[in-house]
Design a protein around this nucleic acid. Structure first.
Length: 756
DNA sequence: GAATAAATTGTTTTT
DNA sequence: CAATTTATTC
């Protein structure tokens, strides 16, 4: 095959097909290209695609790899297993679930479902959630499973005090409960596959016979269970190729063990190690910044990224007064970028915590910049969507009490907590599922609740019977109709209910889309798909939206322009983390990941004060700022970058000598005074007015013009008929269809521009 | 006993 | 500041 597009190291990677191979691939070093070429090369060399297993961490990575291999070798590449760890394990478990005491229809529980199970147990055991918070249990369970322990083994290494004893009881019960619910959590998928392999050697052997070549992407993020899985499959022939970058290991908190990659050569003494160190992504300045930062970490694999690219622009740093100003600056910069690039898709805003997105979103909405937030609340996590899913889950797996509880009184059918309590108690006593009690209603129930429960049971009967007759999409539509879930929102007619209805319809189209893509797909397939898919995977690469996401979700992606916001001690590095060197190093790697996402320009911002956890905090600049070589940074304080032609105003404006904020951020003072009157306190009315005039190209004044369509929080959509006044006195007149013409203070009106 | 209104409380990162 | 828990009304 034609390898002319590859450099020397990439060629070596592509041509080393047999035996253990470690590819240390720095950020932007053409890792995906090397991997796909290597897999294609395997197939060209006569390896049957069926014998190839490629494991990734995200569906997006899997999909991309599959598509690129298909483009190299054609459709037969589809016979290779290219999937995430979790999907591959789910697939293996579906086939042999009965060997482990589950049925093939087992549900996959996310952390929300997990929390429900744990809460239920805590309640039953009479343990106060404050004594042992359910979140605490959840992380212990996950931690324990990632380390391949069971409840007893966990207890053996714990403090063995009263607290640990109670935790142990809850965990043990959790395991029992999950099995009766016929459900597995995410960690179970990996762990139970290992159990299956350990207890049923012929099953393991069949997979060993099948997968002659195994490839693992992002190997630095594997935990003990995943490590064990990979090695169980490859122990016989050792044809294992792992790719990773120890500098990008950012999932230690999830059990990822960086030693897996650091010790690979010790695990496989005959391993071939290949280093990809030439970076094709970023400018030299961005790369120097990343290198300068990451060299502070110790215990790394020796590796230095280099590039043939020119230096490029300096890194832009902005010191904002608060988070709103920070967001306004980001908007400002994006407008400038848009003027040259004519695209919003080349921009990404990265932050440490999902909570940071809110202020950015508000400002983007006001500025009319189209954006999309990834992560945070997943589409499938929305209440109304979860409700439908719960119905479908119960239909597929009647043992799923957790889902049944969710929907038994949704929409309202007069089955309240008391009735549900009675039913659960009865189920516990009879040792049967909650679903079962619907058909054997306990005698203790009064006649009214009894009738309501019987009605619900009849509904479920009808739905179960209808399933065989129709296609997936038709069936989901039927469930929505018969349960009244859709109607419930339709009749309500509020802004919120309309949004919920929209989400339900979107869900329905997701079902249709899935059915179209996977011919003959069953309801079980679809449920598994949505359990393992994330919003990030749904992301269509688009030119029309600015991307907002956490630094964690940005791994593996690249953007021409990258903003990292909230560069403050306490946020990044995060205060929730210990100050132990180990934790700081992982935060530093996270920072390294963020910086190396940028191709052309990198923007960093921090704020003097910000609202955090609902209270005002003052955070010093992030220590990581000092670790980026000074000469690479262009500090916006002192380097006025706004061309508003309002120099006279700047001279008059009061300057905060420490932050330089009022003077340099002057146009923004106008922008932000609506939100924060205190920020404009330094300005006299006259200055504010003339600044607003000078600010004619700025955000606020030009944002709304007569003829614009806007959406008001209370009055709905309307047309702008006029904008008068300046600065914080600016007023906007809007004609609403239902409410007539009204005038608002532009500054505080809860309005956003409606994009056509 | 169920539905609704008011009060409270806790927030890192994710397959 | 939302999502859950607790008090109040129906």
């Amino acid at each position: 095959m034609d390898l002319s597009a590859l450099n020397r190291e990439q060629k070596t990677a592509v041509e080393t097909l047999e035996g253990p191979v470690l590819i240390l691939a720095g950020a932007g070093s053409g890792k995906t290209r090397a991997l796909t070429y290597r897999t294609a090369n395997l197939i060209f060399s006569g390896v049957d695609p069926k014998n190839i297993l490629a494991l990734t961490f995200t569906n997006k990575a899997a999909r991309e790899m599959r598509a690129r291999i298909v483009s190299l070798v054609g459709d037969r590449a589809h016979q290779a297993w290219i999937s995430t760890f979790h999907s591959a394990c789910a697939r293996i478990l579906r086939r042999d679930a009965d060997k482990l005491g589950y049925t093939g229809a087992f549900a996959i529980y996310d952390d929300d479902d997990q929390a429900s199970v744990i809460k239920e147990i805590l309640k039953r055991f009479g343990i106060d959630d404050k004594f042992i918070p359910h979140g605490e249990i959840r992380s212990i369970i996950s931690d324990m499973k990632n380390k391949l322990m069971d409840a007893d083994e966990w207890f053996a290494v714990s403090k063995k005090d009263f607290y640990a004893q109670r935790v142990h009881d809850v965990i043990s019960e959790y395991e029992v409960r999950l099995k009766t619910l016929n459900a597995m959590d995410f960690d179970d998928l990996i762990l139970n596959t290992l159990v299956l392999f350990a207890d049923h050697p012929p099953v393991l052997q069949s997979y060993r016979d099948r997968f002659h070549y195994v490839l693992v992407d992002e190997y630095q993020d594997t935990n003990a269970a995943q490590y064990r899985l990979v090695h169980a499959l490859t122990a016989a022939n050792g044809n294992l190729c792992v790719v990773g970058d120890d500098d990008q290991s950012i999932y230690g908190w999830r059990g990822a063990d960086i030693r897996n990659i650091l010790d690979f050569e010790a695990d496989y003494p005959n391993a071939v190690t290949i280093r990809l160190e030439q970076n094709y992504r970023s400018t030299a300045n961005i790369l120097s910044a990343a290198n300068g930062l990451i060299t502070r970490n110790v215990g790394r694999k020796a590796k230095t990224l280099w590039t043939e690219e020119s230096a490029g622009d300096p890194i832009r740093l902005f010191y904002a007064g608060d988070e709103r100003e920070e967001a306004a600056w980001v908007c400002d910069q994006i407008r400038k970028l848009y003027k040259t690039d004519n695209s919003y898709g080349s921009v990404a805003i990265l932050y440490r915590m999902n909570a940071q997105s809110r202020v950015l979103e508000e400002m983007f909405m006001r500025a009319g910049i189209p954006y999309r937030v990834f992560g945070g609340i997943r589409f499938y996590d929305r209440k109304e969507v979860r409700d439908i899913i719960a119905y479908l889950r119960v239909i597929v797996n009647p043992n799923d009490d957790i889902s049944l509880r969710r929907i038994i009184n949704e929409p309202k059918r007069s089955i309240g907590d008391a009735t549900i309590g009675d039913l659960s108690e009865y189920a516990l006593k009879e040792n049967c599922s909650l679903f079962n009690t619907l058909y054997h209603i306990p005698q203790t129930l009064a006649s009214r609740p009894r009738r309501c429960v019987a009605e619900f049971a009849a509904l479920m009967d009808k739905l179960l019977a209808a399933r065989a007759e129709m296609t997936l999409t038709q069936y989901v539509q039927r469930v929505l109709d018969d349960t009244g879930l859709l109607n419930m929102h339709r009749t309500e007619d509020t802004e919120e209910s309309r949004a919920r209805e929209g989400n339900i319809l979107e869900f329905l189209s997701a079902v249709a889309e899935y059915e179209k893509a996977q011919a003959g797909a069953t309801l079980e397939d679809f449920l598994e798909n949505i359990a393992l898919v994330t919003d990030l995977d749904r992301a269509a690469d688009s030119n029309e939206f600015v991307t907002l996401m956490t630094l964690h979700s940005a791994k593996g992606l690249e953007f021409p322009y990258v903003f990292i916001t909230g560069f403050e001690e306490g946020i990044f590095p995060n205060a929730r983390r210990s100050t132990e060197e180990k934790d700081i190093q992982e935060e530093r790697r996270l920072c390294y990941v963020g910086i190396t996402r940028a191709m052309k320009k990198l923007f960093i911002s921090h704020a003097e004060k910000r609202m955090l956890h609902n209270q005002l905090s003052h955070n010093p600049p992030s220590r990581f700022l000092d670790e980026i070589p000074k000469h690479l940074i262009l500090d916006e304080i002192g380097a006025q970058s706004f061309s508003f032609g309002a120099k006279d105003i700047q001279r008059k404006a009061t300057v905060n000598p420490r932050t330089g904020y009022t003077s340099m951020g002057f146009p923004r003072a106008i922008l932000r005074d609506p939100y924060l009157p205190a920020g404009a306190a330094n300005l006299t009315r006259g200055i504010a007015a003339s600044a607003a005039r000078a600010f004619s190209t700025g955000v606020l004044q030009s944002l709304f013009a007569p003829g614009d369509r806007v959406l008001h929080k209370k009055f709905g959509e309307g047309n702008v008929t006029g904008v008068t006044g300046t600065g914080s006195d600016a007023r906007i007149r809007i004609a609403f269809t239902a409410y007539g013409e009204k005038e608002f203070l532009l500054a505080i009106a809860p309005i956003v521009k409606v994009l056509e």
